[in-house]
Design a protein around this nucleic acid. Sequence first.
DNA 1: GCCCAGGTGGGTA
DNA 2: TACCCACATGGG
Length: 213
Amino acid sequence: MYDRLLAHYGPQGWWPGDGPFETIVGAILTQNTAWTNAARAIDNLKAAGAMSAAALRAMPEEALAEVVRPSGYFNAKARKLKAMADFLGRYGDTIEPWRTMQPKTLRAELLAVHGIGPETADDIVLYVAGLPSFVMDVYTQRIVDRMLPRHGLRGYDAYQALFERHLPHEAPLFNEYHALLDAHAKDVCTKREPRCASCVLSDLCATGRRTVK
DNA sequence: GCCCAGGTGGGTA
DNA sequence: TACCCACATGGG
């Protein structure tokens, strides 16, 4: 899958963003939200001079909510950004110490932060700290469901383990692989159907009429 | 008008 | 553990 996707789509160069802090903010703002909307909110934050942990802490939550309004869930996301800014403060507002941590350790710490669930934690571990943690998302789960219709996998961790079990734990590989799966999903596999009509992975998808969720 | 978008937290059985 | 549901804007 990886070789085919790379050959077809080319290197993706994720994460789109200007620096580690912006990547963290983007990971939170894009939760269940189209990237274009998250990007508007990021632009607003920059225009407001609020693209730093210190600035986020200093800004009233209500004002922050207005700034990130275009990303949707703006009240919830303002609270989440505040929580992340507080967490960063415990590391002196720098992510550098994260780069030498064990991925599982960093992931566990991130999961304890309000608003950081499994996917956002993995986004940050992989795309900010540069440590190997395979990012799972609904797109990738959908692709797996098509190829292994009777896999019986349940929940985020099970889908993630499927990839982590069979791949070398190398951050550049995990980085590119997730980006390629995302590109593929957006290209042809967005619909909730058991099989793509035609795509670079078509012959690997389930051929029966069985419905997968 | 309706569905979807790079989820998460809180509540309930 | 396993489902519900709220959270909310913007594009197709």
